[in-house]
Write a protein that binds this DNA or RNA. Structure first.
Lengths: 132, 132
DNA sequence: AAAACATTTAACCGAATGGTTGACCATTTT
DNA sequence: AAAATGGTCAACCATTCGGTTAAATGTTTT
């Protein structure tokens, strides 16, 4: 309903959003913003990077529509703006059936392996588990 | 369970995955692969681009783990490999509450507007709807 | 064996990316 | 008024990106 109305077919944003998300610094900044507003230098401190560098990252996030900036005196407060993330997730959701299909396959395989092991009591139990 | 086991904490992939998704050509290729395997030149044809160019895009998808290649004679068959998309979606899911929160806000606002309109029968009904 | 086909590789190009430093502009503090 | 603070802007740099063309590699067809 509301989601379809807002999101569908506006894929131009996706370029910018996915690009913004492709950098670990920016993802970390977004994560940081989940616990509330932060100033630019606040966001910058965790990273070994000049303030100007961090500022650039924030601008990338901003122009991807993932962050909103509110200027208060000399400090710029940044706020998470998650709507565009919803667009990204919606794009990804198209592919859900494909990975769930493969997970189903995987589960079937595991079940089969288990059955096979159960059916071969002669097989000596290994000290190491398979998945390691 | 299985998802957590496979996905959690391996964010290094995310750089590559999100970067791969940031290009519309590559997203279109992925979309194309949802209807089955395709050869490289097959994937390339829809785009105004040299084969070598398309080949590069496919390699980006491949090294992001989104496409698997199976060589059969002289043709390379590409197949969608969606598991890494699941990782991306899982990363995004952390932020779901934020956009749903905002959507709730929006809905609340809309409800309030409706109520406001309902409460002002003197307001002349407009010929154009708001959302246009 | 030669020709056609499917694809990659290599070399190149201009533009964008991620980073730096240094100068600049407001605002707040002293 | 001066100094300190919070931030941007501009210029620069090396690297990556998205694209090209031309040559090379391997397979299939003739």
């Amino acid at each position: 309903m509301i989601l379809n109305h807002m999101v569908e077919l506006q894929t131009p944003h996706l370029d910018a959003v996915f690009h913004a998300l492709s950098d670990p610094t920016r993802r970390a900044m977004l994560h940081r913003l989940t616990i509330g507003e932060h100033s630019v230098s606040d966001l910058a401190t965790p990273f070994r990077m000049s303030l100007a560098g961090a500022s650039k990252h924030i601008k990338v996030l901003e122009s991807a529509g993932l962050v909103r900036r509110r200027i208060e005196g000399r400090t710029h407060l940044c706020q998470l703006e998650a709507a565009r993330l919803a667009e990204a997730q919606q794009w990804l959701s198209t592919y859900e059936k494909f990975w769930s299909a493969r997970l189903d396959d995987l589960e079937a395989i595991l079940r089969e392996e288990d059955a096979s092991i159960a059916g071969k009591p002669a097989t000596p139990p290994l000290s190491n588990k398979v998945g390691e």
